[in-house]
Nucleic acid binder design. Structure first.
Lengths: 224, 224
DNA sequence: TCAAAAGTGTTCGTGCTACACCCATGC
DNA sequence: GCATGGGTGTAGCACGAACACTTTTGA
């Protein structure tokens, strides 16, 4: 190790990922129960240190895969939290990310298996470790803002979905209702989604037309 | 130094600040000429390592003060650049910030003194070191976006300014013209600025009414 | 009196909002 | 046939866009 490195090496870099999904008409976040004092039985967004040869983005991805087993989901850097005293174990700077997981599950490996990895509705979060309350608030705001001016809802929806499903996502996350006819006109005029000419079967009501996203790449569009 | 720290200590944290100002009807960025190989005579946004007991935000502030002598200017975290190979000298993760300096100068200490610290118009940037081209592009996009939905122009304007000064800022940075009457109506309807009932004297034309910002705190507002 | 920038209203079109009823299916 | 969510059109209004001339000053 070179002197110049030794001289300045004092902060460790970690990533924390705020993982969102929608289940049972609620927006939820995946949290892990901590064991280490002083945060025993506090909960935290999954996180981990960045490895020597690994980019920060890649560390966040790895972190996500290790905790949930999901790949290829929406993942975006959020903000870097760098207060000197944010971690009682030492100087840790956290690069926070947020991830979106489709509401049809993509079967998470760890979810049901361990009691210490659980989805919490954003309205009923437990005691949070570190500055994770701040990080989660930040993530929520970003998510809400991005729904309005981008197409990233695709990250929360399954491949095929109805216009009502889509509208529901917006209503659940933004916490307000929209007029059905106006909402549909808006969305369809943006050319973000395409009709599949397929209907959802097996429901005790008129079957919904199914749609899919033209592209599952992030794009800025004024949606609302 | 504890073992757990030793084990993971491999990346150094730095901050880089993209400093904007408007001079001579051009948007400019402050850059520093580098000496170290392999970037001899390349230019870089001012940066520096984060000290042990210092928050990342504070490091960015310090960095800004040391390079320009200005305090209390608009400073916002931009994004964290964490590719493993971004710095040939070692593993350095950079938390990038951008700063806005009022167009009336706030007399920068270092600007004219050293030939190796210079304002460059964003359209005519020199060879840039590291990934600073990417960082600056990112900063530019953020700045443009934020002009549209926040009041942060205040960071670029002096305490007192005319509506034409304000419109000019928008035109210079966004690179398009606005209709004078519509622009004024828009701005005035937002209640972001107040008339000072004072006019600018000493110009060979009709003197402009002067205004100031109601508040110089960042606020999200749809401006355009 | 001239040059230069400041200041000021109205018209037109369009895009957002509000609103209620019929339809298709499974049970 | 009934309960459940799916699907559809229009009218009014508010807001954004386009547009040209008069005013005030210093030189």
């Amino acid at each position: 190790m070179k002197t110049s490195q030794k001289k300045y090496k004092f902060a460790v870099i970690a990533t924390d990922v705020v993982i969102f999904t929608v289940q049972e008409n609620q927006l939820k976040i995946l949290l892990i129960k901590m064991k280490k004092h002083p945060y025993t039985n506090y909960w935290a967004a999954p996180g981990g240190l960045v490895k020597p040869a690994e980019s920060v983005d890649r560390a966040a991805q790895r972190n996500l895969v290790e905790k949930t087993g999901v790949r290829n989901v929406y993942l975006e850097q959020l903000y870097t939290f760098g207060k000197a005293e944010r971690d009682p174990f030492g100087r840790v700077v956290s690069v926070a990310y947020f991830a979106l997981i489709p509401s049809d599950g993509v079967k998470l490996q760890t979810t049901a298996e361990y009691g210490d990895v659980t989805w919490f509705p954003v309205g009923k979060l437990p005691k949070l470790a570190y500055d994770h309350e701040e990080i989660i608030k930040y993530a929520l705001n970003r998510l809400k803002a991005k729904l309005e001016y981008s197409n990233i809802v695709y990250g929360l929806l399954p491949k095929e979905f109805s216009l009502s499903d889509l509208q529901n996502m917006y209503e659940i996350i933004l916490g307000k209702k929209f007029d059905k006819r106006n909402f549909r006109k808006r969305i369809l005029s943006l050319n973000l989604i395409q009709r599949l000419r397929k209907k959802r079967r097996g429901v005790a009501n008129r079957p919904a037309e199914l749609y899919s996203f033209e592209s599952r790449k992030p794009r800025v569009v004024k949606v609302l």
